[in-house]
Amino acid sequence: MQISSLLQEQAVLIPLNTADKQTSIEAMVDALAAGGSVTDRDAYLQAILAREQTGSTGIGFGFAIPHGKSAGVSRAALAFAKFARPVDWDSLDGNPVQAAFMIAVPAEAAGNEHLQILIALSRKLIHEEFREQLLQVQNAEQLTDLLETI
């Protein structure tokens, strides 16, 4: 799978030193904007926050997957953050979050291929083994290697 086309090096934040959910999300959005896949930072941020409003994306087990579909996204992209200190995310199981994937999807989700990758990633997160491997990752290169195995 072409996970590298979705995940750019500047969107891998290891570690990310933030205090709360809001600043964590903003930091990840900024990282995606810096990589060029998010062209309208504010519009995309709104989409992400609106999604969180309908229910937390903290899926439990110390992971969160904030995601948003917005015209402010030019191409599907992924960001990853491993938090220096666990962040409270109103998770389903109430536990703070140790790491997060942020998913950006363009308004017109052309190219199912990219969506399929993101979907495969979501599915993978249910598996404990994969989550443990993710938490071991130290840099962008290792992360890419791990994701290529999906």
Binding site: H67, K69, V105, I119, K124, I126
Partner: peptide, 18 residues
């Protein structure tokens, strides 16, 4: 789920795994 990229599949995988 409304966005249809994450929770739909997390839920499906979670059910399948269990």
């Amino acid at each position: 789920c409304p966005t249809g990229v994450a929770h739909t599949y997390l839920a499906a995988e979670s059910l399948l795994k269990t």
